[in-house]
Nucleic acid binder design. Sequence first.
DNA 1: GGGACGGTGAACAGAATGACCGTAATCGTG
DNA 2: CACGATTACGGTCATTCTGTTCACCGTCCC
Lengths: 222, 222
Amino acid sequence: MIRVLVVDDEPLIAQAHRAYTERIAGFEVVGVAHTARDAMAVLRTQEVDLILLDLHLPDRHGLDLVRALRAAGSGADVLAVTSSRDLGVVRQAVALGVTHYLLKPFTFAAFRDRMDRYALYRAQVREVSEVAAQHEIDRVFATLRGGPPDSLPKGLDPATFDLIRAALQAAGGLSATEVAARTGTSRVTARRYLEHLAEAGRAVRSPRYGGPGRPEVEYRPA
Amino acid sequence: MIRVLVVDDEPLIAQAHRAYTERIAGFEVVGVAHTARDAMAVLRTQEVDLILLDLHLPDRHGLDLVRALRAAGSGADVLAVTSSRDLGVVRQAVALGVTHYLLKPFTFAAFRDRMDRYALYRAQVREVSEVAAQHEIDRVFATLRGGPPDSLPKGLDPATFDLIRAALQAAGGLSATEVAARTGTSRVTARRYLEHLAEAGRAVRSPRYGGPGRPEVEYRPA
DNA sequence: GGGACGGTGAACAGAATGACCGTAATCGTG
DNA sequence: CACGATTACGGTCATTCTGTTCACCGTCCC
């Protein structure tokens, strides 16, 4: 369970964020604060993993709160949630290590995306305590900040997705052309979905050498 | 010009980092420090945009230095450079807002990649002072943390590249023909990638005499 | 009923590979 | 020491698949 502290000056908004958070598996809200002072108080008594922080607070700027947190040695991560479109603020937020920055108003999908990313990130850094290579570090950073996650991006149909995935699962290892032949879709479409699977880590790509001409890419279920 | 402070306890390494930095257009080194105390002193007298920070320092852990910096309100960004493979350290570094994390030893290409990314990030946040939409924020984050850019020349496939490199690493010293046999590629292809590795300084070539006929070229990982 | 959007496939430029072949470098022999 | 036999090198080119663009069609919303 990832323990979340929701901080927003408007009680209604804070409640909404709490509800949003609780709709996502793996997260629990351990506190709600409406001021920086309240937030600090909660942090003194509660273990908190992630702070959902509105930067606009009545007593203090949110970034100041983060600074104070860091000075105090707190390792809590911060997801900034604000309507401020000032890039200077974004830049400072980055420097202070916010995991992400959500502009209000946001959709639940966008919110869940950031939260899912964060959960995945935590799983990665918790799973092993040592890394062997630079690219593993890169993967951790990319998880937190990279492209869109598991929710199907635009242009991908759930039904087609299932079809392609099933075909791959059944055969074990197929090229885009072979998947196309088995599912009845075009190669282009098959490739689109296979590529998504690979991107999401649910399939691995490896080249197939031997014949003349450019090598084929084989996708195998992970 | 992006003003860089180089921090590393070993003078030789610090000089190397300084040289690396100065090879990249748009960056200038405004200071070199060997201890956390030195670094703080420089930061008090100099405007610094980016700190190239070795986490292993004689007087204090690098992350403590970052914490102190943040507490003091410094907005300098940090690129962590360390040989520590401890993921806990990585995690803390992320929370403190390091722009990236480079494992020693690293190639100049990897270093330049991170620096270029950072320069691009700065250009983005400086160009405009306001943002209109979430996706612009996302772009800024992705610039800083996105996946590694394929610095491979055209005609070379990343997957094949990894395959060849892995084969070489595992065996220690192989000819193009032997690599071909182990990877399933043709000799021509294997040689293409081995040549690239040699060119990039990641493998060394030495002839193998003894048998009849023209000597073979043996590639060994550098 | 019209417009916008989302998903698909056909066509195309070019990217990555293997086959072929002349050339280069060594060893063995007279 | 010279010369032929042998073996690998290194460049060129045909081949096949990739990845992208664009037009089409259905559907949903206004």
